[in-house]
């Protein structure tokens, strides 16, 4: 218990002093996970909407795959992305391994099924009759999509939160493809593992609390957007 108290004190101290190392780690975590979540939204929302509205052979299988992917273990993603990015691997020429871009790629792979799956569920829960009504009112396809996504925006924001929460908190993939390099690819989760390994439990607790604080602030902002009085 005393250790946790020490950790909290250490966290406050690190925050108040604006420790440059901690600041850099925190900003990188935010940057990497925001970009990864952003890209996964750009791909996952259209993909999820398509899966919700389209009917084609094998759709059930694809939906099952997406739903399975929502629980994709980060270490597995890390391993495969590492092998792809190795110098001897198919994407080796890009020299991306052990860079923040590599972490973005891995986190994108982790977040994509989450965003796709939740978008699918969000769009599908809108009654088909509603869709017919919109079309009957003379809406174009683009207008229909817009109205559907607007209608589904509460669960869609939940998809954003789940995607972001999934990637900012993962450690396995970031460790493997990023390498936890000081000043380059060290993020909050990998730094926590390192400090625990070094026996600096107070610093590790401080970093954990920072991670929780950031996740809370981001979710708070998203929840605020989500729960605003609906127009």
């Amino acid at each position: 218990m005393e250790l946790i108290w020490e950790g909290i004190k250490q966290a406050i101290w690190l925050l108040l002093n604006g420790d440059p190392e901690v600041l850099r780690i925190t900003l990188l975590s935010l940057q990497v996970s925001t970009v990864a979540t952003g890209v996964s939204l750009l791909v996952g929302i259209p993909l999820g909407t398509l899966l919700a509205l389209a009917r084609f052979p094998g759709r059930g299988l694809v939906v099952s795959l997406v739903n399975t992917g929502m629980g994709l273990p980060p270490v597995v993603v890390g391993l495969f992305v590492s092998i792809l990015l190795w110098r001897s691997g198919p994407l080796g020429l890009l020299e991306l391994l052990y860079t923040p871009t590599a972490i973005v790629i891995a986190q994108f792979v982790i977040a994509l099924p989450i965003v796709t799956g939740l978008t699918l569920a969000a769009v599908q829960q809108i009654p088909p009759r509603f869709r017919l009504q919109i079309l009957a009112l003379g809406a174009s396809r683009v207008q229909l999509l817009w109205v559907l996504l607007r209608e589904a925006r509460l669960p869609l924001l939940a998809a954003v939160m789940a995607g972001f929460g999934g990637v900012i908190s993962e450690v396995g993939a970031s460790m493997m493809v990023g390498g936890n390099i000081r000043g380059q690819t060290r993020v909050l989760t990998t730094a926590t593992v390192l400090e625990t390994g070094k026996g600096n439990f107070d610093v590790a607790i401080a970093l954990s609390l920072l991670l929780l604080l950031i996740t809370f602030l981001v979710n708070w902002a998203l929840t605020w957007i989500q729960q605003r009085r609906r127009v």
Binding site: Q31, L93, T99, T101
Partner: peptide
């Protein structure tokens, strides 16, 4: 975002 712009050739050397 500078994050994605690191050129491979530079990183190599």
């Amino acid at each position: 975002m500078g994050l994605l712009a690191a050129t491979p050739a530079q990183a190599q050397r």
